[in-house]
Design a protein around this nucleic acid. Structure first.
Lengths: 327, 327
DNA sequence: GCGGCTATTTACAACGTTAGATACAACGTT
DNA sequence: AACGTTGTATCTAACGTTGTAAATAGCCGC
């Protein structure tokens, strides 16, 4: 211990923690000893004593999915502002792993949990007994008693679809519907898609289902729309996220179909790749920084105990028109 | 405490840790109490007692950069295999932040550190005093006494360039050189590029410098090569990573230049985006899973004290030929 | 039926920190 | 000169866990 400074342990603690009533010379002496002995406070001991760790977990499906990577970047930055460290749990969208995360594997190691579930059901959440504060990212799951941040998916999807209608397209398809109870996001976006078509007095040209929101799924789904539809190909497609759209784009270009001339394409998420695709991808951009900031703020309120009812916050979004829908 | 089971703290500990000499009925009783009271061992206390936390840090520039996101995914998976949790530090490639990471901000919170530096100098590493085991990812930095995993950048860059030569291209340029002492990776790839050209008896057509390895830098650099070069445009370009290449591709397609017909393009990293670009990007694929596995293994040896000399391990790579260089 | 063995359980101490109470000294006031 | 006040430093206990040593009980062979 750094009593090389000829001082009690507590005084060292006081210096380290900036306690005001330490004489300048003592402080200097202690700081010198700290530097000399390369003393580092043991965070485990501090955590034990204080009952909190300064670490939060961010649980998401997979960092290799650009949307989540971009979100994680912002969450880490927001947490950093508060002096928190972020630990990542990848669930692969697997229900068993998601339940594990929610059940509190990391109890007492993390102060709070930011969780972006994919497969979790309302029942899973209701059955949760772990008391670690948790904030959900993304769609609402059941009637869960947890704080929650998401964009208004129905409205956003409606805007995206309306944009296609405004271009004068009439044979409008969607890619990204999901069978499983899992696809809450998909369900909301599909609803928005249908609202917009109904408002415009159009019927949906086709809706392609996918197993996941990956490029490969988008590519396959688009191939299906081109050949499988008895009514012929669509003239515009709303993909429920950007990776689906990039996969679809790939299929179209490979077959010499012009985008947007023959088929207009719009995505969702505004990932970096979409901006540099050719043609650049029109998309709905959720305000990821806002999502991250709000989520971290919510968690902070939970931690300080000042939060009351679970809140459901809506983050902003906006349509970004790029080449894939320019006429 | 779970002495609801009518048993000492230590016995609970013994049950939790699978100590063999616990009678079956006691074990059952304790397990029942644990379930009933939802008891969770306090990891901070355990860490304090045992002197290790089961947490390692992965420090990298930015998760929003696809290569690092893909690498992080694999590191987390590899760490998971060993029961370790991964905490992420984003440095933004900023030297001050990198020094902070290396100096041990997380001392006693993490058992080890996997670090992918960008701006750090050999001097910074030599000045390191923190004793947390560390394994470096990416290029060797100075003559540092640390374990270290990377692909053979010179050889890989040479292969990439040789591939362009084999296509019959003769006006071969590179994008990605860096002025700063920082760009160790860039320097090695540039060296490989020049080796290959020298072997083929060619002179370099042009070498574009970039501030960073982002899409925007690639786009700008390519524009420069097209207009700025007195010798005219190149007929092939080796980009030092895939994001540079995707940026460059965007510039080319926007100007109606055909890839690969007019200009062939090759990247480095094999990120997912490149596979779905049109034309799909030829690239050098480092074995990311191997890098992650080996790095985690190295760290494990350090932690168990069985490691001797610092090791410098070379991960595999291979050329993946796709449309952007097909003739 | 006693000594020595094994199986099971417990007691104690320690990991390094910090909140709170306490000790001490110097000072100005009455 | 006795008093409270203030600033500085120390003392004590506690956070929850686990390694070690020790206690207890049952069992065997003689």
């Amino acid at each position: 211990m750094a009593e090389r400074a000829g001082v009690s342990i507590k005084t060292v603690s006081n210096v380290v923690n900036g306690y005001p009533h330490v004489s300048p010379e003592t402080r200097l002496r202690v700081e010198a000893a700290i530097a000399e002995l390369r003393y580092r406070p043991n965070l485990s001991a501090r955590n034990l004593r204080q009952g909190r760790s300064g670490v939060i977990a961010l649980a998401l499906p997979d960092l290799a999915i650009p949307y989540f990577a971009e979100l994680a970047t912002r969450v880490i930055a927001a947490a950093d502002q508060r002096g928190w460290t972020v630990l990542i749990d990848q669930t692969q969208g697997d229900r068993a792993k998601e339940r594990l995360v929610v059940s509190g594997i990391r109890a007492h190691l993390i102060d709070g949990l930011l969780f972006s579930p994919l497969a979790l059901t309302g029942g899973d959440l209701a059955a949760r007994v772990d008391s670690t504060p948790m904030v959900l990212l993304g769609e609402r799951v059941g009637r869960s008693p947890y704080d929650h941040v998401a964009v208004d998916n129905v409205a956003a999807a409606e805007e995206a679809t309306a944009h296609l209608v405004q271009l004068g397209r009439r044979r409008i398809a969607a890619i990204g519907a999901q069978k499983a109870a899992a696809g809450v996001t998909a369900r909301l976006r599909l609803r928005g898609f249908r609202h917009a078509l109904a408002k415009a007095g159009l019927t949906e040209h086709a809706v392609a289902h996918v197993a996941a929101f990956h490029r490969a799924d988008g590519a396959t789904a688009m191939a299906g729309l081109l050949t499988g539809s008895p009514a012929g190909p669509p003239d515009a497609v709303f993909c429920f996220n950007d990776t689906l759209a990039l996969g679809a784009l790939r299929t179209l270009l490979a077959r010499g179909i012009r985008v947007p001339d023959d088929i207009a394409l719009i995505g969702f998420d505004d990932i970096e790749d979409g901006r540099y695709a050719t043609p650049a991808l029109t998309t709905v951009a959720p305000d990821k920084s806002q999502i991250a900031d709000v989520a971290v703020d919510l968690l902070a309120s939970r931690l300080s105990g000042t939060a009351a009812q679970p809140k459901e916050l809506v983050a902003g979004h906006r349509l970004i028109v790029r080449e894939s829908t320019l006429h």
